[in-house]
């Protein structure tokens, strides 16, 4: 109960700390499966690093520069995003992603502490550019499931996938 309260409060703090131009962020109390307790500091770090990963992917896909993914992504998530960037570049395209709102909930912390999973009901705008020519903006609302693993100084996104049908 105490842990849920901590994480709920952390969400309020996160939202209040973000500037107006930033997406609004709501953090739901964690509904953890698994025996490992989640410290408040860990939960906050994970969410901060995850939100940062949206900024990274947005810039990387905007500039067609896969190196900008290095700090925040690893494993299959990084490979798939890098492949998308290569495809875009080959087609003369780029994409601008702007996350608008996040509703984040941590759902799994593996017993050995080497992975953590969260879901995020995220609203974002997508705008395609074909040889610099903008296509109409499209607003998307999708629930993502995200798996993160700890690196030396931060959590990195290893799986990043929209759930179907929401």
């Amino acid at each position: 109960m105490l842990r849920r309260l901590f994480i709920g409060c952390a969400g309020v703090a996160l939202a209040a700390g973000l500037a107006a131009a930033q997406p609004s962020v709501r953090v739901e109390p964690a509904t953890l499966q698994g025996p490992r307790a989640l410290a408040e500091q860990t939960a906050n770090s994970v969410i901060q690093d995850y939100l940062q990963s949206w900024r990274s992917l947005s810039v990387a896909l905007d500039q067609n520069n896969p190196e900008l993914l290095d700090a925040d992504f690893t494993g299959d998530a990084k490979s798939k995003l890098a492949e998308t960037i290569r495809e875009q570049a080959a087609l003369g395209m780029s994409t601008h992603y702007q996350d608008l709102t996040h509703d984040v909930q941590i759902v799994f912390y593996s017993p050995e502490g080497l992975s953590l999973e969260l879901t995020d009901m995220v609203q974002y705008e997508v705008q395609l550019f074909d040889h610099g020519k903008p296509e109409p903006k499209q607003q998307v609302r999708a629930r993502y499931v995200v798996m993160l693993t700890p690196a030396q100084v931060r959590w990195r996104v290893r799986v990043f996938q929209a759930l179907p049908g929401d």
């Binding site: 992917l57 896909l61 798939k80 995003l81 492949e83 998308t84 495809e87 875009q88 087609l91 395209m93 994409t95 992603y97 997508v126 395609l128 074909d130 296509e135 990043f160 996938q161 929209a162």
Partner: peptide, 13 residues
């Protein structure tokens, strides 16, 4: 026309 399909995992034109 041009048809674009774009996601975070792949892009098709």
């Amino acid at each position: 026309a041009t048809l674009y399909i774009a996601g975070l995992g792949q892009v098709v034109k």
